[in-house]
Amino acid sequence: MKPIRTASAVLALLLALTACGAGAKGGTDAKTGGKTVTVFAAASLTGVFTRLGQDFEAAHPGTRVVFNFGSSATLAQQIVQGAPADVFAAASPATMKTVTDASLAGTPVTFARNRLQIAFPKDNPAHVDALKDLADPKVKVALCAAQVPCGAAAAKALGAAGLKVTPVTYEQDVKATLTKVELGEVDAALVYRTDVLAAAGKVGGLDFPEAATAINDYPIAALSAAPSGAQAGRFVELVLSPRGRDVLAGAGFDVP
C-alpha cells in the first residue's frame, strides 16, 4: 500500500500546484452549477471587490462570487480567448477596449479613478519630499513598466512635470514596484494611492500635483455572453451603488 499512498500524495501535490498555477485562468465553479458570478478584475481591486463579493453573496443567497484577479491586459486576453467571465473590471480603458472591440461586452462605465502617489520606505532614507527629487541620480527609483497602466500613468505625470527620471527598474506590475519600496531596495516609486494605503505602515505616501494629469479610469462591464445572465448586471450595479462607492473611497479610490 505504501507506494500507492506515496503516489497519491505526489499526485495531490501536483494537483495543488497546478491549481495554483491555473488560478489566473479559473472561472466557473462547477460545484454550485450556474449560481456563480465570475468576476475578472484588475489586481488593484482585490481588497475592495472581495468585500463587495461578500456583500453580494449575502444579498443573493445561493449565489457565489468567484474572482480572477490579475493584470488587466492578461485578463482581457483571457476573455478574448474565451474565458467564461461574467464581469470585467479593468484598470485602464485601453485594456477594456480589447474586450469591447471584440464585441464581448456592452458599453463600459467608469466606476473609479486612481491617482499616483510617491511611495517611499517608512524611514524615507533619501528624504524624498517632492516629485523633482526622483530626478536626482542619487535617488533610486522604481517605476512600473510602460506596458502596464501604472507605468503609462507614471510616464504621463513625469512628462507633465517636465522631469526626466531614470529608474533602476521598470517593474512588471504595481505590486512588484511596491514590494521594492517595502523591502527598502529603492528610495521611491510611483504607485497608486490605493496601493500605498493598502501597505499603510510599511511605506509612506506623498501626493503630488502632476498626478492629476494621469488619473487612471477603471471601467467595468458585464460581458455579453455572461454565463450567469442577469446576475452579472446586478454585480455591476452593486459596484456603482452608494455602498460600492463607500468601499472604493475607503480604499483610496476617487469615485466619480
Partner: peptide
C-alpha cells in the same frame, strides 16, 4: 525580475 528588476540593456 524580482531580484534584478527590469531595465533595458542592464537587467
Amino acid at each position: 525580475i524580482t531580484f534584478a528588476g527590469n531595465f533595458p540593456g542592464r537587467t
